[in-house]
Design a protein around this nucleic acid. Structure first.
Lengths: 352, 352
DNA sequence: CTGAAAGCGCTTACAG
DNA sequence: CTGAAAGCGCTTACAG
C-alpha cells in the first residue's frame, strides 16, 4: 500500500505529464519559462500524487549551501548571558551542517547601537538566506528587518520581540508571566505585611522595557491575589558593584524589607551585598542560570532563580530557519519558552 | 582554505590509493574481501584526509530504510502518562523520516509482564536496527536487552534505567534528586514541627523501586538540613479512588498532617480527596504534567508539580538512536532530565 | 581480492 | 517554452 509512494518523483510526474523532468523541476521551483498550460497540468499531477520532494536528493544535487547569519550580542566581561544562546546556535549549526547549511555569527556590543548597525550591514552585504537576531535596539532592528523583508530574507527574533514585524517567528520569554511567577515564588518567602523590594539594574535604556514588563507581571500577581504587602521599587542605572552597594544600602537602611526580586541576571551583585552586609534574613529571587548566580543559589543566598532556556532559544532559532529553508515548514508566530524555576536542589540537572 | 575539504570523497580517496571507489566503500564499511595491505593504505588516507562521509549521498544511494522499534506502555484509561513520551517519539519520527528512518511502536500493558515479553519477541522477529524501550519489568527487560546485544542491535532505555546493561544510553530522571527537590519545596509549605506525609500509590510492585528512590531523596533532604518535622509514610496499593479515600481518611484523621508529598502522578486523587474533605489547609506536592493534575494546580489544591520532561525523553530517545545509526555518534551513558517545577503561574508555558 | 557500471532523486547548465 | 545529458557522492550488484 505504501508502494505507490515509491514511484512518486519527478520522473513519474514527468511521465504522466508527458514532459521532461527539467520542466517538472521548473514548476516545482516556480521558475519562469513554462507555459501556463503545462504548468497547470504538472501542478495538478503534483497535487494528485501528493508529491513530497526528496530533500536528500535535492540538497545533494544542488551543490550550493544555504547561509544563515546570526546577529546577537557578544559575550562580554560584563555579562556572559549570551554564551548560552550562542552554545545553542553552535550546537544546531553542527547538526544542520551535513545538510548543507552554514551558520555564521555576527556579534555586536550591547552598549553600542552603531556596532549593531555595522554588523547588520555586513550581513546584508554578504547576502544570506536567513537571519537569526536579537532585536535589542528597537529602531535599528526594525530598519534591518525591513531591509531583509525587501530582499525576501526570512528572519527570526530571539530573546525579545518586535511584534507585528513579519518575522518568521519569535522565540523567547513571555516577560509578563515571568514576573508573575517571581511574585508567586515570593509569596512563599514573605508573609502578612512584609515589605518587598523590586530591583532593576541596567544601564541600557533600550532594554528597560524588558525589565518593566517583568515588574508589571510581578505587581499584577500581588494585586490579583489580594496581597497587601508594600512593594517598593529601586532602579539602579550603574551596574558596577560600588553603585549597586550604595543604592541598596540607601533603600534597605530605611525600611524593613523582607525579600528582594531582581528583574535580571544582576541578582548576583545583590546577593554579594546581602552577604557582605550580613543580611541573610532577606530572601532573594532573580534571573538566569549563570555561574555567579548558581554559586549564591548553592549557599542559600539566592532562594530561586528563574531561567528561560537561553540555550534552547538559540538552538530553536537556527532550527526554525533550517526547517523553513529546507523543509518549507510553517510556524506559529510566537514560541514562548518555559519559565523554569531553579533551586539548590535541581540546578545540577538544569540544561538551559 | 576550506576548498580542499571539497575534494575529500570516495573518489579522491580512490585516486590517492590507486584503487576503485568500490574498494574504498568496502573498507569504509568494514566489509570483507579487501587485502590487508590495500585496506591499511586506504585507512591511512581516510585518516589523513579526515574524511567525513556525505550522509545525504549515503542514504540516497542505499535505498534501505533503517527501522527503529519502540517498546513502551500503552496509554491506558488508568494513566495517560505515556502519552507524552509517545508524542515525543512521534515528533522525532516525523523529523527523521526524510532521512530514511522508520519508527514503529510496540505497546505493552504495564500490569502484564507477558504482554511485554510478547511484544519484545515481535520486535526480535521483525528484525530491527535499533530499539527504544522503557524497561519496566526488570528481569524481562534484562533478557530482552541481552538478546539485542547478541544480535548487535543498539538499544536505549527511557524513563527508568537498568544500570550496567550495555544500553547505548539512559534517558530519564534521577529519582533521588527528584525526591530531594520535593522536600525542598515542602520546606516552603511547612514550618517548625509540622507533620509531613509521604504517599505512595501503586499496585505494580515492579515499579515500586521508583517510588522508594524518590522517598529516599525526600527524607535525605530533611535529615541533611537538620529539619525535625515528623515524616509519616503511607503506601496505598489499590489505585481506585475509593481505596485512596479510605486510606487517606485513616491517616489524616489521627494526625495533624500539614502537607503531603505524593511520589507519582496519582496526586490528583489525593487532591480530589482533600477537596471533598474540605482540607484546603493541607498543602500538596506531586508529580507530572497531566490534565487532571494541572486542574488541581490551577485552583490551588496542588501547590507544586514536579515533572521530568516525559515528551523530551521520547524525543531524545529516538534522536539518540538516529544519531547513532546515521552519524555513528557517541553518547554519555546517562542523560538525566531536568527536574522541573510547575506552579499555577508557569504551567501555561510548560512543554514537557 | 578488485573494478567498472548503473542508479538513488534531484538540479544545473546547455542546446534548441 | 522545452528536452537531453551530466553530475551531486555515495551504494549495489555483477563480472572477473
Amino acid at each position: 500500500m505504501k508502494e505507490n509512494k515509491e514511484l512518486v518523483g519527478v520522473k513519474e510526474i514527468a511521465r504522466r505529464a508527458k514532459v521532461s523532468i527539467g520542466t517538472v523541476d521548473r514548476v516545482l521551483h516556480n521558475r519562469t519559462g513554462v507555459s501556463k498550460k503545462t504548468k497547470d497540468k504538472i501542478l495538478a499531477i503534483i497535487a494528485e500524487l501528493e508529491y513530497q520532494p526528496n530533500i536528500l536528493a535535492r540538497r545533494l544535487a544542488s551543490k550550493k549551501t544555504l547561509n544563515i547569519a546570526v546577529l546577537i550580542p557578544a559575550v562580554s566581561a560584563e555579562t556572559n548571558y549570551w554564551k548560552a544562546p550562542l552554545d545553542g546556535i553552535l550546537e544546531a549549526g553542527i547538526e544542520v551542517k551535513p545538510y548543507g547549511i552554514a551558520v555564521e555569527q555576527y556579534f555586536f556590543d550591547q552598549n553600542d547601537k552603531t556596532s549593531f548597525v555595522k554588523q547588520a550591514d555586513q550581513i546584508l552585504a554578504a547576502g544570506v538566506d536567513g537571519v537569526l537576531l536579537a532585536p535589542m535596539f528597537m529602531k535599528e532592528s526594525e530598519k534591518f528587518a525591513d531591509e531583509c523583508k525587501k530582499l525576501r530574507i526570512p528572519y527570526v527574533f530571539i530573546n525579545s520581540d518586535i511584534p507585528d514585524h513579519d518575522s518568521l517567528c519569535y522565540i523567547g520569554p513571555d516577560l509578563f508571566h515571568s514576573g508573575s511567577l517571581g511574585a508567586h515564588l515570593m509569596r512563599y518567602l514573605v508573609s502578612g505585611n512584609d515589605q518587598v523590594l523590586i530591583v532593576n539594574i541596567s544601564k541600557e535604556i533600550d532594554n528597560l522595557h524588558h525589565l518593566l514588563r517583568k515588574e508589571e507581571g510581578f505587581k499584577d500577581y500581588f494585586k490579583k491575589n489580594g496581597l497587601n504587602n508594600e512593594i517598593i521599587k529601586q532602579d539602579i542605572r550603574s551596574t558596577d558593584y560600588a553603585s549597586v552597594k550604595k543604592e541598596l544600602t540607601k533603600v534597605l537602611d530605611n525600611r524593613a524589607i523582607k525579600a528582594i526580586f531582581v528583574t535580571n541576571s544582576r541578582v548576583s551583585s545583590v546577593a554579594k551585598y546581602l552577604q557582605e552586609a550580613k543580611r541573610g534574613d532577606i530572601k532573594l529571587i532573580g534571573y538566569d542560570f549563570l555561574e555567579d548566580n548558581i554559586n549564591y543559589l548553592k549557599n542559600g543566598d539566592i532562594e530561586f532563580l528563574i531561567s528561560q532556556k537561553p540555550k534552547e532559544q538559540g538552538y530553536r532559532g537556527i532550527m526554525a530557519l533550517y526547517n523553513h529553508l529546507v523543509h518549507a515548514a510553517q510556524f506559529d508566530k510566537s514560541y514562548y519558552m518555559p519559565i523554569d524555576i531553579i533551586t539548590s536542589e535541581n540546578y545540577l540537572f538544569y540544561n538551559n
